[in-house]
């Protein structure tokens, strides 16, 4: 048994954020809520979604692994209106996931389940020396600047405690500098200077579904994966992206 009702807008954003990196996903559902961890096809990035039970208006579930094609879910959620309620319902007999959108009309979709067996993929528990809390819009703007000069970008913490988004091409260079006085910065927790370099296309995919006022928690070290977390309602979404090493 699995039946859960949530506002369509939040679930759409969760699916949008996930489907930028991953083609299919296995939702591990149980009495506490929905979880899913997946790596992108190249194993460069990992996405982890946690939608606790209290996010839902109604939630009843036993333990199931529900494997779905994210592109199909994304298309359906693309048709959802922000004032609609979404009920997710597992049809074990037909091996389908039903999606029922309700407002003025009741619209029913059902998608075939994939045999995406739960990978038991665990998110590695990495300790980071630095954490930046920044508005998503500001970070996305800095990535756009960096993109003008190269296809990768360095995320640096300077010795004097600034957060620097730095990109260098053959002849050109781009740099966005934030410090504790910047309005877009909500907090900088810094213990040491650090620098890691990342593929820009992945960072853009990771931040594509964000709204400009979303608060990103960006965890940084030297030549370490970057961890980027933000909340969608009560749900939490986390990305890990492996660095480029010189």
């Amino acid at each position: 048994m699995f039946k859960a009702t949530i506002n369509a807008k939040d679930f759409k954003k969760i699916i949008d954020a996930t489907s930028n990196l991953v083609d299919e996903i296995c939702f591990e559902v149980d009495e506490n809520g929905i979880k899913a961890n997946a790596m992108d096809p190249s194993h460069v990035a990992l996405v982890s979604v946690n939608i606790p039970k209290d996010t839902f208006e109604e939630y009843i579930s036993d333990v199931h692994d529900i494997g779905v094609d994210l592109e199909a879910l994304k298309k359906i959620m693309g048709r959802a209106k922000s004032n609609e309620k979404l009920t997710l319902e597992l049809d074990e007999e037909k091996n389908k996931l039903n999606l029922i959108l309700k407002n003025d009309a009741v619209r029913k979709f059902s998608v075939s389940l994939y045999d995406v067996s739960s990978t038991n993929l665990k998110v590695p528990d990495i300790e980071y020396p630095n954490e930046v809390m920044i508005k998503a819009g500001a970070f996305v703007e800095a990535l756009k600047d960096a993109e003008l000069v190269n296809d990768h970008v360095s995320l640096k913490i300077s010795e004097d405690g600034k957060f620097i988004i730095f990109s260098k091409g053959d002849i050109n260079q781009s740099e966005t500098i934030y410090d504790n006085n910047s309005e877009s910065i909500l907090d900088l927790k810094i213990t040491e200077s650090s620098k890691s370099t990342f593929n820009l296309a992945y960072l853009k995919d990771i931040t594509k579904a964000t709204s400009s006022d979303d608060i990103l928690h960006i965890y940084l070290g030297s030549d370490m994966p970057v961890k980027i977390e933000y909340n969608i309602g009560n749900a939490k979404i986390l990305f890990l992206l492996a660095p480029r090493i010189e």
Binding site: M39, H43, V44, P225, A242, R244
Partner: peptide, 12 residues
């Protein structure tokens, strides 16, 4: 010009 690491290389 740098090598792209895989995320699973950081799993322990």
């Amino acid at each position: 010009n740098g090598k792209q690491m895989r995320i699973d290389e950081f799993f322990k």
